[in-house]
Amino acid sequence: MLAFILRRILQSSAVLLAVGLVAFSLFRYVGDPVNAMVGQDTSMEERDALREKLGLNDPAPVQFFHFIANAARGNFGLSYRTSEPVGRLILERVPATLELSFCAAVFVLFVGVPMGVYTGLYPKHWSSRLLQAISLIGISLPTFLIGILLILVFAVTLHWLPSFGRGDTVRVGWWVTNFLTLSGLKALILPAITLGLFQLTLIMRLVRSEMLEVMRTEYIKFARARGLTNRAINFGHALKNTLVPVITVAGLQLGSLIAFAVVTETVFAWPGVGQLFIQSVQFSDIPVMAAYLLLIGLFFVLVNLIVDLLYFAVDPRLRSQGGSARVAGH
């Protein structure tokens, strides 16, 4: 178990290094940082001196090493656009994105899984068929369209919910939160639904098909033959056996909720890292883009690590592998 975790952490570091390499190549191949820093009338000598001072004449591996070493300390340099430290810029924006993604994930799991269980248990019921049909819409409509439609209905027409921004926020330490004010909570609803709808339908369909599969197994039939209650069978035996594949996909989806918040944040003018990234792209603000890339890579790797650990919690067959003796009987 411990060996497994160590191995996974090593693998994760390798993945992060690879992401770091991509981020680093942004600096080298997308535009010239010196051009971006100096004015039009700077002489070639001054440019060369700056280049030397910034370490841009060092061999690429050395520069990469410096980049990674700095990144590990949270030092991503200064933004070309605002001249603020990139680390601080991103840290200011991270809470907004994480809170949005968290709400979307809660929405996805707490609505999607029960809907999947229901449609899996009663696949022929009319309401299951209706949910299936609706989920097709969720899968096929693009995120930005859903966002705009929601704004049109709930903000413009009904005036129930705000159409953009985070509403009133409260600062707790360096973390700026939406959760402590009513207007902040109201502001979360539409973006979270927009962000989560696609994943919700995906999870629902996955849980449904897994449920259908599990309900056909012998151990479910044997559980019935033992006279267990439907509740114990459906939500104990069956649901738990659908969890392993669901956790895998849910983990990946959670990562992409954070990464693909870009579109939702743009539609709802949500001041998160996704919006920051879009602005940075417009200004070729490479340090911010590189840091964003690394941050998303980090989230993905962390989520996957947690998913791997959850496997152990769910499936005893994995726990006993490597080490514990398989007791041979006859």
């Binding site: 012998e218 151990y219 033992r226 006279g227 738990k240 499936d315 005893p316 067959r317």
Partner: peptide, 18 residues
Amino acid sequence: GARIGAIFQDPLTSLNPL
């Protein structure tokens, strides 16, 4: 389970693995 018990063919798949 209470009055009528049942045993199925395949013990490998009759038990919930989790």
